[in-house]
Design a protein around this nucleic acid. Structure first.
Length: 290
DNA sequence: AAGAAGTCCTGGGCGC
DNA sequence: TGCGCCCAGGACTTCT
């Protein structure tokens, strides 16, 4: 489940190996991995293209070509990008292989096949819809407590769902939202609408801090995540709530509560992240037995 | 029309 | 040992 720090760590690890390289050939091991246009068209259009930059927006990779074309790649849950100096494999879950003109190779692997690439037409057709409406990057100046407060005024949903919405802020996922809300002392099921300016300041600071920590640690290696050179991240050992349901809160010792919110697992500390019972949005919230 | 629910996707963990 | 069931969740589609 790569989120912004993981995607950015991968981007940094790959950038130097890819820029100024030409893609001599795109090998499609699984046509399903090419979401737009067809696999055959993508192969045709990518051949011989020179990479000038590898960028990131939210959780999307943007491969910028000299021809002004852009290849968009999303890892979703289980996707990986691995660069090899010399060709090896392919491995079991290799979906795409970018053969580069220095004989190195960039593999896109994806066990669960949720990820994929898009090669939008010059007029923008084929751009993944989510990329067109992304919210601000959370580590830029436009991501402020005031922005969060004003955006939340029109929303009736929970603060957790609000922060997971990529239209609100780009790049957060289940792990970092749970971590940020714990650091901020905000219950995930509170209505976004009801947070005070001071609480939004806490949330904004917590998001910034937890993402910076994630970047410093080079990401969370919870499942399959590794950077572009196959190295694991160290953030996993620094998680305070995610994956720790039932274990003691590192701040107060209270066993962490795990609930299911909108089909997603949510872990929090009932003592450090209090809620007024009357402000719970979903009365059917079920508490698991952990 | 916002927000919730359903869908995709498959290896791994679990119970029996 | 093996089968079936459920879980993980990002982004998109469908439903209410």
């Amino acid at each position: 489940m790569p989120e912004m720090p993981e995607v950015e760590t991968i981007r940094r690890s790959l950038e130097g190996h890819l820029v100024q390289r030409k893609v001599s050939r795109l090998e499609v091991c699984d046509p399903h991995a090419v979401r737009y246009p067809t696999a055959a068209e993508a192969v045709d259009e990518i051949a011989g293209q020179e990479l000038v930059r590898l960028e990131r927006r939210g959780k999307y990779f943007l491969f910028r070509f000299k021809s002004q074309r852009t290849l968009v790649l999303h890892l979703r849950m289980s996707g990986r990008l691995i660069w090899h100096e010399v060709e090896m494999g392919p491995e079991r879950f290799t979906r795409l292989r970018f053969h580069l003109d220095d004989r190195s190779i960039l593999d896109f692997l994806d066990m669960r096949r949720l990820g994929g690439v898009y090669l939008p037409a010059p007029d923008g057709r084929g751009t993944p819809p989510g990329l067109l409406h992304l919210g601000p990057e959370p580590l830029t100046g436009s991501f402020t407590a005031r922005y969060l407060e004003q955006t939340a005024r029109e929303r009736r949903t929970t603060v957790k769902a609000f922060l997971l919405d990529q239209h609100v802020v780009a790049g957060l996922g289940n792990i970092y939202v749970d971590e940020a809300l714990h650091r901020a002392g905000i219950h995930p099921a509170r209505r976004a609408l009801h947070l005070s300016p001071a609480e939004w300041q806490s949330v904004q600071s917590a998001i910034r801090d937890v993402l910076r920590d994630g970047l410093t640690m080079r990401g969370v290696s919870f499942s399959l995540y590794v950077d572009g050179l196959g190295r694991r991240g160290a953030m996993t050992e620094h998680l305070r709530v995610y994956g720790r349901g039932g274990k003691p809160c590192l701040s107060c010792g209270t066993p962490l509560t795990r609930i299911r919110q909108g089909g997603r697992g949510t872990t929090f500390c009932a003592l450090c992240q209090p809620i007024d019972a009357s402000s719970v949005v979903d009365r059917s919230l079920k508490e698991d037995a952990n």
